[in-house]
Design a protein around this nucleic acid. Sequence first.
DNA 1: AAAGAATGAGACATCTGCGTCTCATGTGAA
DNA 2: TTCACATGAGACGCAGATGTCTCATTCTTT
Lengths: 215, 215
Amino acid sequence: MATDRDTVLEAAVGVLSRRPTAHLDEIARAAGISRATLHRLFPGRDALIREIGLLGLRRFASALDTADVERGDAEAALRRLVDASVPDAMLCAFLAGENQLYEHEDINDLWEVQIARLHALFLRGQQQGVFRIELSAAWLSEAFFDLVAGVGWSIQDGRLAPRDAAFSLAELFLGGALRRPDTRTPAGATAGSTAHSTATPVHSTSDHRPDTDKP
Amino acid sequence: MATDRDTVLEAAVGVLSRRPTAHLDEIARAAGISRATLHRLFPGRDALIREIGLLGLRRFASALDTADVERGDAEAALRRLVDASVPDAMLCAFLAGENQLYEHEDINDLWEVQIARLHALFLRGQQQGVFRIELSAAWLSEAFFDLVAGVGWSIQDGRLAPRDAAFSLAELFLGGALRRPDTRTPAGATAGSTAHSTATPVHSTSDHRPDTDKP
DNA sequence: AAAGAATGAGACATCTGCGTCTCATGTGAA
DNA sequence: TTCACATGAGACGCAGATGTCTCATTCTTT
């Protein structure tokens, strides 16, 4: 059934995210194809894993693009990112569990780039006064990605309804990551959904804290 | 040097949590012992994995015990749980990545028991008015465990200082899980619950509600 | 110091999963 | 129908990891 490469990769993720040592037999069966066809699509196990990683990173990068995370209010950007990431949560789950052990140079580079973009988003949010500064941007990045992965696992196991995924993720994470209303502008921050160009008086450039950097 | 079984298991986790397909050679080297001794301690790879899972579950169960999660104010209980869990975060990371595909019956049972305790804690907290009810207890359990795992990974990779771990975890998670005294409710919440604007301050321990337990 | 136990290093056989091959079947196009 | 192509099923050899063994060395204990 799944003759498309990406479809096979997604099926493979469903198995490998849970059982990293699964045999190619299982993966092929999960994808609904034979081991021979699997070999015709991907030269070997290494290539398969590698392509899964690449697919996950491409999807996540695409989510970052779609969400346009580099611009606008950081909270709104993050909400957009949540919506864009959730559909590919399972891919992210795979990446989270297996990330740095990739021996492939290019994959690591791609990974670093995406993490850097996420990191920059949180850093910008902190500078805007949107995100808490007691929590390092590195930790926020890590936590966000782990929660996306958790969403993927939960959905896969049927513990979380796909409909609730984006809401659950955004609410839990933003609740912990946003600066409390009492310390920032009380009114506008919660507007969430249709928030983007509304008159949200987020302390943009006024309250700059040259929070130098650092993970 | 690590002749103690648990010490070896912890070293093994350090390797396997990152590279699930690591050879026994690597594991033995990581533990500072020879492959022969590793085999003397654990009959084989299966047994090793199994014992790692058991150790992780024992530690997490012990953390739940230490935190005394079944009694008292839910927020305080969760804070205690954070402190008790963080030292074993890496074990939890292993469990998170590999949980349910354990073919071993007893491990799965033990796992279910601990998750049920966590679930009960959140349920009790919701009944006490401490935790938000828009987020399901199941999701809170999952998210908490995933964040503990994330702490483990981050510390291992040097992205998070061990000193900051408990604080970062507690602040981020509780920020998202606690009901706000001063409500900032999401606009387009899909959850039907109308739990906002109740100016309920966090109930202290005095306000015990006869929490019926668990699902 | 001497005896005992435990460990490390290495050799060896085994086994399982991987990669490749061939052939039969099924499907779509001409 | 017939041809071309893709897939599935299975066989086979191979590589590498695993499991077991032996022996030398080191540490502990008396």
